[in-house]
Each structure stands twice: as C-alpha cells, then as structure tokens.
Design a protein around this nucleic acid. Structure first.
Lengths: 345, 345
DNA sequence: ATGAAAGCGCTAACAA
DNA sequence: TTGTTAGCGCTTTCAT
C-alpha cells in the first residue's frame, strides 16, 4: 500500500551551482537576479552550471528573504447553480495567463460568504500572498475597506460603489455603455418598444446597466415608463418578469441585465408561442455559454475579461513595484455579440 | 499587568509571541504543532498571546524548514468558447473548498498546450507546491508519465487510459454507467430508437460513455446499428450530426456525449420544427448551465464533481502523509438530471 | 515540560 | 566584478 513517493534526491541548491561553476553563492544569485553585474564569461559559466544541474531557486527561501511570495490571492466564489455566471472561468484563466507573464501565480482560496474577510486575513498575516484580486465588490465592500485599513495591496475588479472616495486601484466594465450599446442595436434593427428586465434596485451593477438602456431609449425619443421590471437574478424570476412585461407592456424587445434573466425571458416567449428575434427580440448580458449555445443564439453584451485581466495585473505590478505606483481606475467598454434573438427584420 | 499592544509594521513573529507569553520560541512552536506536549496553563498563556498579537505563522519560513508548501498545483486549462464545459468551475470550487479543510491551498498555473509539462517542472523544482491535481488525462498522458518518473506526488481526475498499469492514484466518473443510466431512462419513458451522437473514436471518454448506451439498448433487445454518429465536440458538428441521424435513422431519442452536442441537436430539431421531448427526446452529458437554462430544460448526466474533489483530496492527503499511503483508484457514479427534453409521453 | 542551538536556501549590505 | 557576512522565521534535534 505504501510507496516511496518522495523525490529521491533533494533538488540542487544555489550552493551546488556555485560549486560547479567555481564561483561564490552570491555570484550565482546575481546571475539570477542581476545578470548585468556579471562578466559575460562568468555569467555563461554560471548559466551552464544551472542548466546542467536543472537548478530552480527554492521559492520558500527566496520568499523568506525577500518577504514576498510572488503569489496573488483570489477568492473563488461558489458557482451559483442554474445561473449563467460562467464569467469567473474566463476571467480566472485570463488572470492566470497574465500573471504568468509577470512571474506571478494565482492562489485560490475559499472564502466564507458570511464573513468575507476570513480568508484574506490569514493569508496576509502568514505572508502567503503579496496582493489580492478582489472580484465581488458588488457585495458591498467589507473586504476592500478591511484590506485598505490593513494596507494590504489589492486591485478590485469592480468599482467601489459604496465608497467612491476609495483610493485603491480598480478595473471595471462600463455597464451603462453596455446597456446603451444593446439598446441602440435593438433600435437599429427596428425595435420601438424596448423593455428592461433587470435586477432589484439595490444592485448597483444592475442600475448601471439599466441607465444605459434608459439613456439610449430616451435619446431616440421612445418611452421607457411602464417598460421595466425588476426581479431576482434567477431563471424563474426572469420568466415571470418577462411574462409580466409581455402581458402588460407589449414590448417588441426585452433587454435583460443578465443572460440568466434573458434565458428566463426565452422561456416566457416559448410558453406563449412567440418566436424570439422575429416577434420579440431578446438581449442578455455577459455572453455566457448558454447564450452561445441556445438554439437561435442569444444576443448578449460581452465583457472584455481578457482586457480586464491585463489591466488588473498592470495595476498589481504598479502596486508591488518599489516605489509603489498607484494606477488610475480603468473603465473598459463591453462589446455586443449579435445572434438570432435580435435578428434584423 | 499586560503591556499595551501597538500593531507593529511587520507581522508579529513567533519570537514576539514567546516574549509576550514569557516562554521560549520553541514552546510557542510546540503550542502550534504539538499542543499535547504543553502543560494546560502554559498552552493557554501561549494561545492568549497568539490571539492578542493576531499571530499567524510565516509560511515562507515554515515552508523552508519543513520542505513543504501546503500548496496544491492545478493547471487551469483555457475555457473553450462556445462549448458547455463549465465543469472546471464547479470542480475547482469543490477542490478549493476541500483543500481548505485539509489546510491546503490551490495554486493555479497556466500550462502550455503544446508542451504540457512546462508549468509542472518549474513548480516542482522550486518546491512551490507539494503535489498536483492533474485533470486533463484525456489528452494522453505526457504529464502523468513525466510526473511519475520524477516521483512528484499527484492525483489524477481521469483514468490513465493510455497506461492502465500506471500506479498513481486517480479518481474518475464512470462514463459507461452514465451512458447506461441515460439510455435506460429513455427506455423507461418509452423511447425505442435511441441514437448515439458522440465524439470520434479516438476519444476514450467518448467510447466509455458510448459503451453504456450500447449495453443498455442491446439489453432491451433494441437496435444500435445505424443509430450512431461520431463528430467533433462543437455546436455545429452536433447540429450536423443530429441532422444526419434525424434524416437517415429516424430516431425517437438522441443521447449525446456532451451538452455541447446536445445543444447542437436541439438546433437541428428546431430547424425541422421537431419539438424536443415530445417528438424526439434529447439527453446530454455534464449538466452544464446551458442544459439548466435552455427553454424546456435539457436532460443531462451530471458528474459528481463535489465527490470527485473529496476523493482527490483524500488521495492527496494519503500521498503526502508520512509514510505515504497510496489510495486505490475510485470510480464514481454519475446521476441524471431529468428535464423537458426527455419528458415522459 | 521547557529551553538552547543549529540550519533550511536565499539575498541585502557591505568588503575586497 | 566577485566574495564574505548576516539573518529572514521557523522547526528539529538534543539537553535540561
């Protein structure tokens, strides 16, 4: 049952490399961290020794010495079943990829939904990570205020809605621009009564997206009153909200705050025998897999998560540079993926 | 009388705790790692000091000393756009959650798709992680054979298809059982001509799932010949494959190797005005968000990813225990989520 | 049950 | 340009 699953020999150390190259340990360290200091022939000799031994610096030792781990902490929130929030997956991948290019790795930790600061504190005090990426600023900002007070470096994906005076770096996507983009697209394909199916009023992200709809529709001289519904972000709420809109407001398009709601709207249309895209257009938000896969295809606002990751890592590097450099907030523009539910007629 | 505490710039160290508690550093270390050695009153005094100072052991120092990082490496593969493989998200979350309960954290790294060993090697040599979770065994096993030869501890999610003699721990889901489960369900709701829409023959996972379909259908004395199509795992391939089956084989049910293919099949049905679940049943694999959200709902085989994570972490703990214990492979049973596309008639 | 000493592998500061 | 010294914070002997 037991097996010798440990590596047979210990990995080579910096001292081994120094011996082999016939130089001191410090010279090897310099070859790694400050190669310009070495004479070319010495550098080459050291690099040969490194290659021959397959040497890689021991991270624990380096971390201990430099007081930095080159690890970025990211709380991995539970995926909500039955919703279309596969955003995280795309973002995490982009983040991991950009981090690699900067020599960082991503450390995932599970937070407590009740007390969001719980995971952060332990990782900070144990110097396990150099900084955090905080993604759930829509939950209010207990973490960010805590992190800020503790002077822990972090970059937020999401605006500090509750405390606009917060000075930490953040990157966000312009929801209002996305809402307007979608609304103008619907106007362009000939829709006149564009309804909004969104989240409850306490959602700042929801209100942001909604404001784009309001602005674009009014700009076209068309009505918004009586054409809005606010519900929870669930499939069934979306279906019920859309049903209500269809029965009471007679819209020819429904613009939704999320793909989850948009899929709910498609349910409502199907139940009434209404064809999406022909009779009533539907547009969602987030360009989820469901939007991409549903028969006919669901038009959706796509968040530029790859760009977000780039900006987040840039801000992180600024923060961790010496001296630290505080990059200004970045608000990125979403795009629109047009599919069958908003075909031109 | 205790002295007033002022939060220092640097986190408190073990020596700070020792000073405050009036004991030696080693006693504090023992309080942490071997509390049974201490006299109850000493232990209490140390714990008080730890709490007062908000002390958390420095991970780098501990890692350096113990030669372990309590980090588990996980390669985060790129999410394929336009497919329903949101599996990873659910699995990662379960894994992170279980790891926390065992005092581990998950380190994400981006691999190179061309040379899958690239990320692993650096992390191993730098002792950045104690072990790996390998998820993409369906790609063949360059990583696993490499890891095994390097004697790096790892647990695979996925069988060693190419090398059944491999002795590393692994956890997998029984695809054949899933295929049979879905097929029997379709038989139970009165379907007689159950087609298979699967991947190409070189996919071991696909052949595994398919074998369950074959067995269950034959067991019922019904035909399988002429009722199978093999395509790539894309939406359009699924649509085309389903279209071919519908036109040439007249099935009353299509069992698919993935939700992506199943969504493609729904496209094909929609184009023909065929109602899923009434005229032709459709069942997918993986219980993706698309399956949960698509109007009518897509019946799908659900992988027990939470259980997989539990077993993976258990195997990991065995591997990292001293002496190491090699847990036997685990093959877990999937379940079926019945939705509208396979309603009883 | 508690304490003293050593050292894990690395890099910052300084010396040569 | 290269080498020497010191020490990051912790745990592992071993001694008391």
């Amino acid at each position: 049952m037991t097996a010798p699953y440990r590596r047979p020999v210990l990995p080579p150390t910096l001292a081994d490399v120094a011996d082999r190259a016939g130089v001191s340990r410090q010279t090897v360290s310099n070859a790694l961290n400050n190669p310009a200091l070495l004479r070319p022939d010495t550098l080459a000799r050291v690099q040969d020794a490194i290659a021959e031994l397959g040497y890689t610096p021991n991270r624990a030792a380096r971390n201990l010495r430099t007081r930095s781990s080159r690890l970025i902490g990211l709380r991995h929130p539970p995926a909500h079943e039955g919703t279309a929030d596969a955003l995280m997956d795309r973002f995490v991948h982009s983040l991991v990829d950009r981090c690699r290019q900067s020599g960082y790795h991503v450390l995932l930790f599970a937070g407590d939904d009740a007390d969001p600061s719980v995971g952060y504190e332990e990782l900070v005090n144990s110097t396990a990570v150099d900084a955090f990426v905080v993604t759930d600023t829509f939950l209010g900002t207990p973490q960010t205020t805590w992190l800020e007070r503790q002077r822990v470096p972090f970059v937020a994906f999401g605006r500090p809605w509750e405390s606009p005076s917060a000075k930490h770096p953040w990157v966000d996507v312009d929801g209002a621009a996305g809402g307007a983009l979608a609304a103008r697209h619907l106007l362009a394909v000939g829709r006149q009564r564009i309804a909004w199916l969104g989240w409850r009023k306490d959602s700042r992200i929801g209100e942001d997206r909604r404001s784009g709809w309001t602005a674009a529709v009014r700009e076209a001289g068309l009505p918004t009153t009586g054409l809005a519904a606010r519900v929870d972000d669930t499939l069934s709420s979306g279906r019920e909200g859309a049903a209500m809109l269809l029965d009471e407001a007679r819209p020819d398009a429904i613009l939704c705050a999320s793909d989850t709601l948009a899929m709910g709207a498609l349910h409502a249309l199907a139940e009434r025998g209404i064809t999406p895209g022909r009779d009533v257009a539907v547009v969602g938000f987030d360009d989820s897999q469901a939007a991409q896969l549903v028969p006919g295809g669901l038009t959706s606002v796509r968040l530029p998560l790859e760009e977000v990751a780039i900006e987040v890592v840039a801000a992180l590097e600024g923060l961790l540079a010496r001296p630290p450099m505080l990059l200004p907030p970045r608000l990125l523009e979403p795009t629109l993926r047009v599919r069958g539910t908003s075909a031109a007629r």
